[in-house]
Design a protein around this nucleic acid. Structure first.
Lengths: 97, 97
DNA sequence: TTGACAGGCAAGTGTGTGCTTGCCTATTCT
DNA sequence: AGAATAGGCAAGCACACACTTGCCTGTCAA
C-alpha cells in the first residue's frame, strides 16, 4: 500500500532530469540504499558530481512522483524503487500500432 | 527508418509538459494532423488555450525527441505520432519485479 | 554526556523553459 | 497578380528548477 501524492505529470518531470534517471538506474542495480550510499555510488560508479543536498532534493522529487518509497531505519533512510507509475506511460500511448 | 536526433533525456523533457502530453493524446485520437487542426482540437476538445506559436514550438520539441514525425504536404505540415521512443522507458526500468 | 554521524530545512542564485510579440517565407485560390 | 492561408524565425519576458550555502534536528557510539 503505497501512499504518494504525485500526479501523472510529476512522473515525467521527475524523470526529465539526468541525475534523477541515474538515481533510478542505481536503485535498479541495488535497491534499498541510504542517501549517503547513493551519493557515494553516484560519484564512484556513475561519475556524477552531485552534492549530498542535491541528491537529497532529487530523492524528494522522485518520492513525490511515487517512483521511490522511503522508510526510516534508525538514523538512516532507506530508499526503495517503485516502477509502477511507469506503467501509465505505455498505457496512455500504446506501443503497438 | 526514422531520423531524429533526440537523446533519451529529450523524451522525458518533452513529456514533462502537460500541453505536449495533450498533443500526444490528440494524435492518438486522430493521427496525421496539421498545426492548425491541432490548435483547433486542443482548444475545443481538450480545453487548452495555447496559441499557434506555442503549439508550434511544442511540436518542434516533440519532433526533436522523436515522438512525432513530420512531412510537408503543400502548404501544410502533417504530424505523425511515433511511440517507439517510449519503449526504452520500460526497458530501462522494468515493470515486473 | 559529548561528539560524530545521517539527514532536513530554508533562503538565495543562475540557468533553462514556455510563451508572447512582431515580422517573414511559401503555397493556394480567385 | 494579389490576397488569403499555413507555417517559420528570432528576440524578449517571466517563471520554474537545479544547485549551493548555512544552519538545525535526531540518532548512535565512546
Amino acid at each position: 500500500m503505497l501512499a504518494y501524492s504525485g500526479t501523472v505529470g510529476d512522473v515525467f518531470k521527475a524523470l526529465a532530469d539526468p541525475t534523477r534517471r541515474v538515481i533510478m538506474d542505481e536503485l535498479v542495480l541495488r535497491d534499498g540504499q541510504t542517501l549517503f550510499e547513493l551519493c557515494a555510488r553516484l560519484m564512484n560508479v556513475h561519475g556524477s558530481q552531485s552534492s549530498r543536498q542535491a541528491v537529497s532534493q532529487h530523492l524528494a522529487v522522485l518520492e513525490d512522483a511515487g517512483l521511490i518509497a522511503t522508510h526510516r531505519a534508525g538514523r538512516t533512510k532507506i530508499h526503495t524503487l517503485n516502477t509502477e507509475p511507469l506503467r501509465s506511460i505505455t498505457e496512455r500511448w500504446p506501443l503497438d500500432r
